[in-house]
Design a protein around this nucleic acid. Structure first.
Lengths: 355, 355
DNA sequence: CGCGAAACTGGAAGCGCTTCCACTTCTCCG
DNA sequence: CGGAGAAGTGGAAGCGCTTCCAGTTTCGCG
């Protein structure tokens, strides 16, 4: 319960040892001007000898800057965070933060308790800024986050309203690429598995896909909602097949759901890509390991993290960075091969040449 | 650059508004005794009306408890953190921390800069305790961490020495299970892909595997080191096959390496499990998606995180928790099926009945 | 040499909260 | 009814660092 036995040296001790005022010592460790060379060196020596490291808490109190930002992942799905997506985001965030002297506070707000803590944190000046991810629909957190005077950067747009700062992937454009790929490779009976309807990514991906199809005059045969998980994808595929027995293309709003769908396609005896071509969304490691390897819309997840962090730092420093939309592209693998360039899979008779 | 326009109400303002001393107000928000019912209520009302939330920095400075712990992941591989393993650890840590009022600071120390920051953090009382993961060999960080007077919990044993507090999975026992499974299912020409030799997990898994084989009198045909990545596993498998063309069983120190090895086995025309049975280590999501699905040693990763956090909290509170070894078990899938219970795969002629 | 500008210096006042301590006021019971 | 101990109270001293401010020196140069 007691704090700590060994006490760290304080700035006063350093000053005393160096024979200067505390003010001067402070100036030296912050390498501010107005300190003579001699004193500077004396302080530096004292710092070295004493092994002094400034107490961040005291600095924070005095400067009113905490030196930390939080990355909050708010969701209902408890397991959602296990999605490698977030790991990748964190790597990006962390890389950007490493260039600064900001610490990263990670907050998983998937339980009521967690959300309370996030809310409290938002009002308590425990951090200098916040990155908020995975907001479901009109999560009140979004509004709360905007009310606080802390800079808040959104990772992915919320369902309603446009926050001042955010970075997102071009979900709509990416989904459109998927539609175009299907059209180009001659698929004419596409279905889609989307995500929860109260999710901006689901909406955007759905929109982009139908849009892409519409432009080519290809009707969307059917659509079902999953929950971004593998099992959800499998179940949605079941429902889809019940209603539309013979689709020839499937687009899912996430790779995980594609993997689940692949499973039910297989058990239903449908071949991929011969009978139905499949395109997912995300292109993380797992997309390469499915059977067959997954064609999928790639989004630059690590960059997303990096840009969020940079944007937040900018906002904290008083600039007003512009929102960012990161590009997506299609990674073609065997589950939905290109018509032209012959893929590794044997020639597929059921797929007529593209438009 | 400037801190923040709107100022939050302070305890003084609360006290004033409630007509009590600051001391009393403080007592109320910490719900300490020695406050009359009347004053308590007055303060509570004032808190509500003002929307007061105590400033954590000031609290930290006064109490000398920061209210945060750090989870440091130290490694050289920049991409290592993307391993879903860590996401799972974090979920566990976070779940445990949620019960307390400690915040989680995440520190990825894979660059020199990152290590500096970790070191600085260790000496600067920026957190109340530290969880340290993925130490390579005799990482100096280990020793540094022990020197600080902050409680430090190790996730996984370091290569040398036994820290005061740690939690680890039973790597050795798990690897032994793999060996026993091979022996039981009649495999007699096993090879292994281990991890970096300066890694405790690699050593322990190697040890357990050879130990298990030795007990059954089965010689280990060959062993190569990977680096826990997929590509490393693929390369190691190449080398292995060059030296020993006909192994009938492969154990890898991680699932990722198993996946890589599966790839080269496939390109070399070797069938899994008919020609060579494969067992990995970890049993995270990806193990279910390989072709064929991967038999693998399961370790309770989330629990590992949870127990680390609990242990750290215990240590911070002044107890002296005992180190923990978490059990591992074998998850049998098609890549190394049970001899007895017929798996989903067709009968495998090349596999004689087990011992 | 003289003088204004520029560079130093360090005392002191905080940053917002906890807690020790010296009192004052109740409570309860013999 | 008296007195001891418990409960309540608030002033004041920090926690360790930054920074304003009011001087004191030093320096360049006409």
């Amino acid at each position: 319960m007691e704090p700590s036995p060994k006490r760290m040296p304080t700035l006063d001790e350093v000053a005393q040892r160096a024979g200067v005022s505390r003010t001067a010592a402070s100036r030296v460790i912050n390498n501010a001007p107005h300190v003579s060379r001699a004193k500077r060196e004396a302080v530096e020596r004292a710092v070295r000898e004493l092994g002094f490291v400034p107490n961040p808490t005291a600095q924070a109190l005095a400067t009113r800057r905490v030196g930390a930002v939080v990355l909050a992942v708010s969701s209902d799905e408890p397991g959602l965070f296990a999605d490698p997506f977030f790991a990748e985001v964190i790597v990006g965030v962390s890389a950007a933060l490493e260039q600064t002297d900001l610490e990263l506070i990670l907050l998983l707000a998937n339980t009521p308790r967690g959300r309370d803590r996030l809310e409290r944190l938002l009002r308590s000046r425990r951090a200098d800024g916040v990155m908020l991810m995975a907001l479901r629909g009109d999560d009140p957190l979004g509004r709360l986050a905007e009310q606080t005077d802390l800079p808040v950067v959104f990772g992915g747009l919320p369902l309603t309203g446009e926050p001042r700062w955010y970075v997102d992937a071009d979900n709509r454009g990416g989904a459109r690429l998927a539609a175009e790929h299907f059209v180009r490779t001659g698929r004419r009976r596409p279905v889609m598995i989307t995500g929860q309807v109260d999710t901006q990514v689901a909406v955007a991906r759905e929109q982009g896909f139908t849009e892409g199809l519409a432009l080519a005059g290809v009707p969307l045969l059917g659509i079902e909602a999953g929950d971004f998980t593998e099992d959800g994808g499998a179940a949605a595929m079941e429902r889809l097949l019940a209603a539309h027995p013979a689709p020839d293309a499937l687009f899912t709003a996430s790779d995980a759901m594609a993997i689940g769908a692949l499973r039910t396609l297989r058990t239903r005896g449908l071949r991929v890509p011969e009978d139905v071509a499949v395109i997912g969304f995300n292109d993380l490691a797992s997309a390469r390991h499915t059977a067959p390897p997954l064609t999928t819309v790639h989004q630059p997840v690590r960059s997303l993290g990096r840009e969020m962090a940079r944007m937040l730092v900018g906002a904290i420093e008083g600039h007003d960075p512009s929102p960012l939309i990161l590009p997506t592209r299609l990674t073609v693998r065997e589950s939905a091969p290109d018509a032209s360039a012959g893929p590794i899979v044997p020639t597929v008779p059921t797929v007529p040449t593209g438009v």
